Lab assay of single mutants.
Amino acid sequence: DHWHVHIDGERIRLDGASEEFIRTLEELIRRGTDARELKEIIKEYLR
């Protein structure tokens, strides 16, 4: 599956992301997590 998110107007691909990770991201977004912080979390995950 190819997922991607838009954060700060930037399109970030989440290739190979699990549904669990996507749900976690959605939860963080709902909580109002800062965009820079979200991008860091995604970069760490994709390593």
Rank of each mutant, 00 (worst) to 15 (best):
D1G: 14
D1S: 08
D1A: 08
D1N: 15
D1F: 07
D1Y: 05
H2Q: 13
H2C: 04
H2V: 08
W3S: 11
W3H: 12
W3M: 12
W3P: 15
W3V: 14
H4G: 04
V5E: 02
V5F: 05
V5S: 02
H6Y: 04
H6S: 11
I7D: 01
I7W: 01
I7A: 02
I7N: 01
D8E: 12
D8M: 04
G9R: 03
G9M: 03
E10K: 07
E10T: 07
E10F: 04
E10H: 12
E10Q: 05
R11E: 15
R11Q: 15
R11P: 13
I12W: 05
R13D: 15
R13S: 15
L14M: 06
L14N: 01
L14V: 13
D15W: 10
D15T: 12
D15V: 13
D15S: 10
G16A: 04
G16Q: 08
G16R: 10
A17R: 02
A17T: 06
A17P: 07
A17V: 14
S18D: 12
S18Y: 04
E19V: 11
E19L: 13
E20F: 05
E20R: 06
E20A: 12
F21H: 01
F21I: 07
F21E: 01
F21S: 01
I22K: 15
R23C: 05
R23K: 15
T24G: 11
T24P: 00
T24F: 13
T24R: 14
T24Y: 14
T24S: 11
L25C: 02
L25S: 00
L25T: 01
E26I: 11
E26Y: 06
E26W: 06
E26M: 08
E27D: 13
E27F: 03
L28M: 14
L28F: 06
L28N: 03
L28G: 02
I29D: 00
I29W: 03
I29V: 09
R30E: 08
R30Y: 07
R31M: 14
R31V: 10
G32W: 02
G32E: 04
T33R: 06
T33C: 06
T33D: 03
D34T: 14
A35T: 13
A35D: 06
A35P: 15
A35V: 13
A35S: 15
A35L: 10
R36I: 13
R36E: 13
E37V: 15
E37M: 12
E37K: 14
E37P: 02
E37R: 14
L38R: 00
L38G: 00
K39S: 06
K39T: 07
K39E: 06
K39R: 13
E40I: 11
E40W: 07
E40Y: 05
I41K: 09
I41S: 02
I41E: 01
I41C: 04
I41G: 00
I42N: 00
I42P: 00
I42S: 00
I42E: 00
K43V: 10
K43F: 14
K43E: 15
K43G: 13
E44A: 09
E44V: 03
E44P: 02
E44Y: 02
Y45N: 12
Y45I: 13
Y45F: 12
Y45W: 11
L46R: 03
L46G: 03
R47N: 14
R47K: 15
R47V: 13
